[in-house]
Design a protein around this nucleic acid. Sequence first.
DNA 1: TCTGGGGTCCTAGGACCC
DNA 2: TCTGGGGTCCTAGGACCC
Length: 441
Amino acid sequence: MLHLDLDAFFAAVEQRDKPSLRGRPVVVGGVGGRGVVATASYEARAYGARSAMSTAEARRRCPSGTAFLGGRFAAYRRTSEVVMGLLRELSPLVEPVSIDEAYVDLAAGGHDLSVAAVTELGRDLKVRIAAATGGVTGSVGIGSSKLMAKIGSELQKPDGLVVVPPGGELELLHPLSVTTLGGVGPATAERLHQVGVKTVGDLAAKSLADLVALAGRAHGAGLYALARAEDDRAVVPDREAKSVSHEETFERDLTDLAVLGREIDSMAGRVGKRLRDSAFSGRTVTLKLRRYDFTTLTRSQTLPQPTDDPRQIATIARRLLADAGAEGGLRLLGVGVSGLSLYAQGDLFAEDDDDAPMTATEETAPEDAVPEPPLPADKRWWPGQDVRHEEQGAGWVWGRGLGRVTVRFEGPLTTPGPVRTLAADDPLLQPADPPDWRPTA
DNA sequence: TCTGGGGTCCTAGGACCC
DNA sequence: TCTGGGGTCCTAGGACCC
């Protein structure tokens, strides 16, 4: 496994594009009164500027002559894509973790996995990245798992290369601070410190039961394994998005519900557009708000059908805001949609085609009060396109116009058949479906 | 002039169902 | 005459990551 982490990425792109910034402290992030630092160049880090620090604090620490920049995300994305392209030459299994970070499964790329060979590969990769990006450097870690590769890339930043030889994992891991492990943030670190755990070695001495009691079932079991360098997490090249959201911190706290309503409309517009651009829609609309005193809460509502409609998203978010109230003022609002499915409202079913798969319908949500035209006899639904789940020959098909139509097939969906419209009381839709029913009939 | 924005995953309680 | 045992879905919050 290889892990690549580009060094002070946003600041490095700025220094590449603007020679006058080279060798000078550069801070990229929010430049408004409530901004925070996204990336500080290594020159700025020398003065104590750090990611996630308020920009005001970074201004205090850095000398005059420091460049404070708002960021040019299109440029970062282009540069990132160049780098990801180089990684994909190494292996079909590349998992971008963020715009400046990725894992590569070298085994899947058919490489010689000897220490000497992967060391050479890492060196060569760094040279090619610098050449292709005009001087952006990256730190590379290579090891037997995601855990070891990631730790390797952190050990010699910037411009580092660390190969962890197989068998050397625990020797490297155990002296390190527990906070080196992914998933150990401030809260977990504090609790671990209270029971005397400072290093990964200390962690490895704890029982599974102790860690589960301390950090919860999933997290505790994860820590127990990582402390032993047990990590079989696979590289997942194409993760599907699970939610889409937009949020904004205001320069000054807002109280006026009319003003806040317009902010919601604008955010719902962005979210709806992004959903539409990616052909997703979602059922759960979430409003996030942060009050004047930084208390943060979320309110959500789940719809019977997925939506990507900005007006519908905004209407729900506005109502959630009205219920939550804006007393004292809000410093942040956010609008999000989750529970996503690949689903085009109507469009998938609008085209007529004569491959004539089988289908059946049942209205499941009469309270939706969707005006309900009789189902046209020539309507075609496409199991192959819209099956959301396939297992043991069972599947669910989505229709339009009648609300959500959920049909359960007790048979393979592979054989097309003629369209059938079943009444709600059709025996085929009853719980006692004959187990050998084939929807080819 | 403290404390961004975009996400993921997990937990827990309550409603509801069989 | 005092309370099952699964399971799913929804909501809310929290920890964490980059």
